[in-house]
Amino acid sequence: MNVLAVAPAFPFADYLIAGIFLFFVAATVAGALIAACAKRIIRGVSGLALCSIGIAGLYYYLNSPFLALMQILIYVGAVCVVIVFGVMLSEPDEPLSAREQRKPYPVFGLLLAAVVTAAIFAGVSRVGLDTAWPKAAAADAAWKVEALGESLLSTYSLAFELISLVLLVAILGALAIARGGRDKE
């Protein structure tokens, strides 16, 4: 189901498709930068939501509308909301402690982090670009959501069951830790 290959004879359809793609790329990049660098933590959560919406759009361009829906549902609808609850229940934005304000070289840490990050980015993207990935375009019928659902319930049913088990255990563990917890004497 290549949703983009069947573009109708619409004027400037190519430009429209490329423009929407660039919009989603920009949303992803801007959201990631906001999530990593914003001063207040609630803005970081909003950045994560924006980034997730961008990634959902990219999934659509990668032929998988199902995953695009899931990305918005899980990340924006569940993860971000839960993190906002966490922000409400604790106080992440506090003034700097006295020890941190006395740091001799505040710029040094930032520079070191930027250099490490740039090195990781350059290395990983170089590997991605230099590798000759094998071309194996799958048949369009294999992209249908029906095919995905069938293999989810037949070939990959173990993964399907395991993920529900993991979620159940995670919820139980979260409840056990957050409700009672361990008292600090």
């Binding site: 790329v25 992803t28 990049v29 990631a32 930068l33 999530a35 990593a36 660098c37 970081g44 980034c51 990219l58 982090a113 930027a114 490490v116 990050t117 740039a118 990781i120 980015f121 990983v124 993207s125 991605g128 670009l129």
Partner: peptide, 13 residues
């Protein structure tokens, strides 16, 4: 490249 960028920003954060 976008995925590498996301990884890099995540590690930076």
């Amino acid at each position: 490249i976008l995925a590498a960028f996301l990884l890099a920003t995540g590690i930076f954060g």
